[in-house]
Amino acid sequence: MTTILNRLERSVIDDIPSRPVTRPVPAPATIPARGLDISLSGVAKSFGEHKVLADLDLHIPAGQFVAVVGRSGGGKTTLMRLIAGLESPSTGRLRLGERDVAGLQPDVRLMFQDARLLPWKRVIDNVGIARGLGWRDKAEAALADVGLAARARDWPAVLSGGQRQRVALARALVSHPGVLLLDEPFGALDALTRAEMHALMLRIWQARGFTAVLITHDVGEAIALADRVLVLREGALALDVEVPRQRPRGHGDAQLAQLEARILAAV
């Protein structure tokens, strides 16, 4: 509950038109790890001569759900890899909470379009891949959170695409990360499964309060899920807009339709 209060509070401070949360959020089953805020100042990234990101200044407050949209090759994945510490910026400074990002960040987790499960490990062992004390119980709890407790002993090969992504989500949640980075994780799913995943994602984000960065090529998806949408074009921010906060967000809302048109124009 505290995270929601925080979020409402923040929205007042940020002076953004806020509406009451329309759907009551169930009390989180686990202690929510607070999200971490992400800040980039003057971050640029080049691969050899090729400049992929140019001079980005960006602050993502803790617990925000941000969507990044843009054409393919615009540098979205590169931005995500920088935040995760998988690449280091050519220039500029990247901070996560109180510290500078240098190397892999244990409280940042990633999801990709492919679930990247180890096919030779059963679902439970995939979720608990990082091991550590009491990993099995934690992995089982995370699997239960994504509704797959019954499939713990299965091989990944027998799961559907959506189930595999849910396993990947459970794996990312085990360690209660402060930041979850999502690189088009729903891109390969059919429409129905995708809608299910959206609902699951929102429910877990609301319960846990981590900071979420979702990369997507689907503007509708960005508006449906995120608090804020960034458009990344040729390595620079072309647009940075807040999305009105009521949830769930109905289709056919005139304000949202207008926003969607604005984003599409910027992409």
Partner: peptide, 13 residues
Amino acid sequence: DRGLVEMGRVYGL
């Protein structure tokens, strides 16, 4: 699969 190896690194192996 290099993606799997990278995933392992991300999870601290």
